[in-house]
């Protein structure tokens, strides 16, 4: 069964992203939103961890990037920027949603 994992905390403050990455299996998806978007910025320790996860799809919520002044060109390669509508379709396409709150 495929899972949409959601992470809403900065990887620099909390361990939710690390825990999520340890659990996300190939074929699953990870959406970073709210303060979780800081994990999507390129050139950080988190970038390397994301790059190391083969077969996992990564997404970041555009409105949360924008709200925090993070421009799209700062987002690491391989992470797709999505809107709320796509958040909804990711939740629908996967078999369940697991929130790493």
């Amino acid at each position: 069964m495929s899972t949409l994992h959601t992470v809403n905390k900065s990887p620099f403050e909390k361990s939710s992203m690390d825990s999520c990455l340890a659990y996300a299996k190939a074929g699953s998806s990870v959406l970073m939103y709210e303060d979780g978007i800081y994990g999507a910025i390129k050139g950080t320790g988190c970038t390397q961890k994301i790059a190391a996860k083969d077969g996992v799809n990564f997404y970041v919520l555009g409105p949360d990037l924008k709200a925090r002044g993070v421009s799209e060109d700062k987002v690491a390669d391989g992470i797709e920027i999505v809107d709320y509508a796509k958040f909804v379709s990711l939740a629908a396409e996967n078999d369940k949603v697991q929130a790493w709150v």
Partner: peptide
């Protein structure tokens, strides 16, 4: 929704998600 208004973004995100889901016909 696990958090109250204003202190956390959780309820804002839940609202935006709900609105988007309804708009998509869910």
């Amino acid at each position: 929704v696990n958090e109250g208004p204003y202190q956390h973004q959780a309820t804002d995100s839940a609202y935006q998600f709900t609105k988007a889901a309804l708009e998509a016909g869910h």
